[in-house]
Write a protein that binds this DNA or RNA. Sequence first.
DNA 1: GGAGTTCGCGAACGCTGTTCTCGAACTATA
DNA 2: TATAGTTCGAGAACAGCGTTCGCGAACTCC
Lengths: 219, 219
Amino acid sequence: MTDVIWLRPERAATGRPAAHDRAEITAAAISVADRGGLDAVSMRSIAVELGTGAASLYRYVSSRDDLLDLMIDATAAECRLEPPTGDPVADLVAVAEGLHEVMMRHPWLPELAVTRPALGPGGIAVLDHVLAVLADHPGDATAKLEVFALLNALVATFARNELAAADQSRRAVAYLSHVAAGGERPRISALFDELSTADPDPRERRATALAALLSGLLG
Amino acid sequence: MTDVIWLRPERAATGRPAAHDRAEITAAAISVADRGGLDAVSMRSIAVELGTGAASLYRYVSSRDDLLDLMIDATAAECRLEPPTGDPVADLVAVAEGLHEVMMRHPWLPELAVTRPALGPGGIAVLDHVLAVLADHPGDATAKLEVFALLNALVATFARNELAAADQSRRAVAYLSHVAAGGERPRISALFDELSTADPDPRERRATALAALLSGLLG
DNA sequence: GGAGTTCGCGAACGCTGTTCTCGAACTATA
DNA sequence: TATAGTTCGAGAACAGCGTTCGCGAACTCC
């Protein structure tokens, strides 16, 4: 019995047949998270969503963390993967765009993906695609794995900034505005004055920034 | 009474004097986290560390999340900030190196900093420094704030990769090695074969990658 | 039909963040 | 020096959490 969930057999061949499976439980957890955020994802709430008891879930999953890993990997599997065009930077930006879409569909995902980088079948598919994009590119295995990790982190960062802006998180800027009004730290004051208008086209801004970052990284 | 902690007055002028202050409580929380990780940071464990009752902490902090914000900002204040040299990329890499040092000193910080970007006095100081570095650089306020956010995210990503490698996290690569051994997905197999040797100099690898990323971003 | 195995899940445990409450400790005023 | 007003410390309690135990029910295989 390995400690990583994707290597454990899903169902027993004998005995009483199971009423659910991992995919169904994962879907229920994602549904709960979509509706109430990550904090709403408790074993009991998922059990209610499925109409079973909380203890029953442990027949399919050995801990709540396992379930979070399944959620992450399930969303990775949602990511659209177009065939490579030959332009590594453009192809990676396309992957990033796909990941971004998934993250906007599941607002809890950026926070989760950045705290526990789980690699299941879905994540492996994305990694494999990135490797295909980088096939003709120089760089050792560590560098390519680094590109993959950075791609995820960058997309999550952009997604979180966008979500925070939409979610009118005054909390984040409350102290910033206080410092800006204070008058010391003139650079902060100038920054804050300029910050009034909302971003007209976050998508293009994100794409150009990502392309710039990636073309720098790939040399 | 604002909902951001740095705008709330610390002590009352009248009444029974407080036995502790925010800085002391923050230091206790950081000490607990350094010793036992983020999961060990509970109100009760911090109270034990201080020799008081758990309920007493709510005289200084309105929630555990407030305390986490204080921890983040306290570590930001630990960051060394050298005067700018005129080379923006080199200066930003220097900031990143400083943040990286702090994160290696507090292994729980990358995870925390990436989930809740708290901006208190310490974080403002770092932001102000980044703005000074970028003073002569074109780009609007949003772009410069973006550079700051990305810098934090990138450093946290590098730090977490390094900590995961040191902490022999077989869990992360367990399924990867299984897929590699499976034979399907030849690119994964090739990647895994090449991945055997450990990185000789992570510091230089990190610095060059960061410089490449940032010089790409800054144009 | 019996043996063997797995599943569902109510009940319980220990832990968590947080609130209530009230006596104690202090300052300011008279 | 007495009193009023305010804040602090913290024990007790509450709701909710992840997780484990144990047992009756449900199923497969021989």
